[in-house]
């Protein structure tokens, strides 16, 4: 095809057409090469999603079929059923999976553990970014430094704190620093822990985003008569939706998928266990029930998927467009 175009002197700009011929070949090669990264990406996407696909398909197959053939046989023998989901949601029997209850336990832990740190951190990050007060830098460094505190190290002290409180005896006087709230085994213990460990990262991320907002905007608002609270609510928060959403997604996924904190604080109380803990005990007690485990696992990833897809547009949208000329 390239040969024909180069040898046809039909166009009036024949001179210009001739040197364009090799260029067209190069463009053809370039076209092929430029498709390579896309192809590789698609391949990786397929490879990475395959196990999840397999799980999803298996969760809809009968017990006998799951145990005898691979999930890909659905292509030739499509026999799907909802029995597995009925089984994992059932409340009958002494050791019924009863996933609905654990699903709501997970929600009850995740929602406060996501919303409260964002609310606290946004105020703190604003103060660190835009308010002048002595020791601001030092305090910020200390808060960010808390990021390195390892979670595992603090599990036992926290467990003691939640069951006995914290008391300090000085000169024979006992000061109660933290009352004995008997939180062990309650969802509150779990989300309190997640809030504490989520705050440093939240403050750090939001501070960096807030501080990068154009200074002129804040000053313009001050001249227009806004005080700190107004600037926070009407300027900084609306302009920081992408950062807030990003942190919300990360924190949500982290808390939802967390096993360690949950098993430490509510592991003993099955009624309060979130999905992850219940799922682990199911695979222990019912390790041979593949068909049930796949359904249960899919129940546990359904909400994170929904959250991610509903918030992901905030990653793409640039809210700052047009505020100041670059």
């Amino acid at each position: 095809m390239t040969a024909t175009t180069s040898t046809t002197p039909s166009s009036p700009s024949g001179n210009a057409a001739q040197p364009s011929a090799p260029r067209r070949t190069r463009r053809g090669l370039y076209g092929v090469l430029s498709a390579v990264p896309t192809g590789v990406l698609w391949f990786l996407v397929a490879l990475w999603s395959l196990p999840t696909m397999g799980m999803l398909v298996s969760s809809f197959r009968e017990e006998r079929a799951v145990k005898r053939t691979g999930w890909w046989t659905v292509v030739t023998d499509p026999q799907l059923t909802l029995d597995n989901y009925r089984a994992v949601f059932s409340t009958q029997g002494t050791d019924a999976p009863d996933l609905w209850q654990h699903f709501w336990n997970s929600v009850a832990i995740t929602v406060p553990a996501t919303i409260i740190p964002i609310a606290f951190a946004a105020f703190a990050a604003y103060a660190f970014a835009w308010m002048e007060f002595p020791g601001r830098r030092t305090l910020f460094v200390v808060v960010v430094g808390l990021l390195v505190v390892p979670l595992q190290l603090s599990l036992v002290p926290l467990l003691q704190l939640y069951t006995g409180g914290a008391h300090l005896t000085v000169f024979g006087e006992t000061l109660t620093l933290f009352p004995d709230l008997d939180l062990n085994g309650t969802p509150t213990a779990v989300w309190l822990t997640h809030i504490a460990f989520g705050l440093p990262l939240a403050i750090f991320l939001l501070h960096n985003y807030f501080a990068a907002l154009p200074k002129d905007l804040i000053e313009a608002a001050r001249i227009d008569g806004a005080d700190h609270l107004t600037i926070f609510w009407r300027m900084v928060l609306p302009l920081s939706v992408p950062a807030l959403a990003a942190f919300a997604i990360f924190q949500f996924l982290w808390v939802w998928n967390d096993y360690l904190v949950a098993v430490t604080f509510v592991g003993g109380a099955r009624d309060n266990a979130p999905l992850t803990v219940r799922l682990a005990s199911l695979s222990g007690g019912r390790g041979q029930d593949w068909h049930l485990l796949t359904a249960a696992a899919f129940v546990s990833i359904a909400l994170p998927l929904a959250v991610f897809f509903s918030l992901q547009r905030y990653f793409v949208r640039g809210l700052l467009a047009g505020s100041v000329k670059g």
Binding site: L217, A220, S323
Partner: peptide, 17 residues
């Protein structure tokens, strides 16, 4: 600033986006 009865125009406009 708000009690000075002034208005300011910034170099990069500083419009609220």
């Amino acid at each position: 600033p708000k009690d000075r009865d002034i208005a300011m125009v910034f170099q990069n406009y500083a419009l609220y986006p």
